[in-house]
């Protein structure tokens, strides 16, 4: 499978500290890639580097085999990706306005925007909230708006940074179920950062474990979870005490 994004000898340093040191890493089309690791392992930084939102300190990032010049990422390329963070970070305005923002920024015709927003509002089950101010939504509703806002631009890669972690358990389960259905139907390539084994196990088909800024193990999610290597065993086994691995 041809990789969409490749990292070659990437390092990311901040305040003289190496946050990431990754010799080789790829995102392939159609996969739902999970990135898991302990707090401070560099998961979110890796996500930002992959999404061209942070510049690497050294090394090369390739998009469809072409090296993308560091610090000079074309807007058209940046617009192929979207991101949903842990905090929904919605704007003061209606839910409709929030979901439409990505299309508005791309100067889409108003009729197209209206049509697409209505479609995504329905898919995420939030049509009834369209005229509500997004700042007055519950956590679960806000995260649905956040995900719809990210999905509406039909990104080539969707980056997710712990979007379910702040939700209560029933809300999380319902949203994850709906989201899985939506993303499978849309066949969107996704990169999902989480420290929650249950979320990773439910959503992803490939998993990379990152510890101290290095990818210690990667492969199909069930295989990584069932056969952790010496570098990832202690981290994964702690989790496995709490969650059964049945998919």
């Amino acid at each position: 499978m041809n990789p969409l994004v490749e990292l070659n000898n990437i390092t990311y340093k901040a305040q003289n500290k190496t946050i990431l040191d990754i010799p080789e890493f790829q995102i392939c089309a159609g996969e739902f890639l999970g990135i898991m690791g302990p707090n401070g392992a560099g998961k979110s930084t890796l996500l930002k580097v992959l999404a061209f939102l942070e510049n690497q300190s050294s090394g090369a990032i390739l998009y469809r085999g072409e090296v993308i010049p560091k610090g000079n990422v074309p807007l058209e390329l940046r617009r192929k990706f979207s991101i949903a963070l842990q905090q929904s970070l919605l704007l003061d305005g209606t839910v409709f306005h929030n979901i439409a923002i990505g299309l508005t920024l791309r100067k889409m015709p108003k009729t197209v925007i209206k049509e697409k927003v209505a479609h995504w509002l329905e898919l995420f089950g939030i049509s009834h909230l369209a005229k509500k101010n997004a700042l007055y939504l519950s956590g679960g509703e806000a995260q649905r708006v956040n995900l719809a806002r990210a999905m509406i631009i039909e990104p080539e890669i969707l980056f997710l940074d712990e979007p379910f972690s702040a939700l209560d358990f029933p809300t999380k389960i319902k949203l994850m179920e709906d989201f899985k259905g939506i993303i499978e139907t849309a066949r969107t390539t996704a990169v999902f950062v989480s420290h929650d084994l249950m979320e990773i196990n439910y959503l992803t088909n490939r998993l990379a474990i990152i510890v101290n800024g290095e990818v210690k193990q990667s492969g199909p999610t069930p295989r990584v979870l069932e056969h952790p290597n010496s570098s990832t065993a202690s981290f994964l086994n702690e989790w496995k005490k709490f969650y059964p691995l049945a998919r």
Binding site: K48, A51, L53, L75, R78, R79, F81, S82, I83, L85, Q87, L89, L91, D92, I101, G102, L105, R106, R149, I153, F159
Partner: peptide, 23 residues
């Protein structure tokens, strides 16, 4: 994070500024 989110939505610098002024 808000600045990052706006950038990730595909905003140019000028569009970011307009969004922030409106906000």
């Amino acid at each position: 994070k808000m600045l990052l989110q706006i950038k990730a939505l595909g905003a140019t610098r000028m569009q970011t500024l307009i969004i922030l002024i409106k906000q």
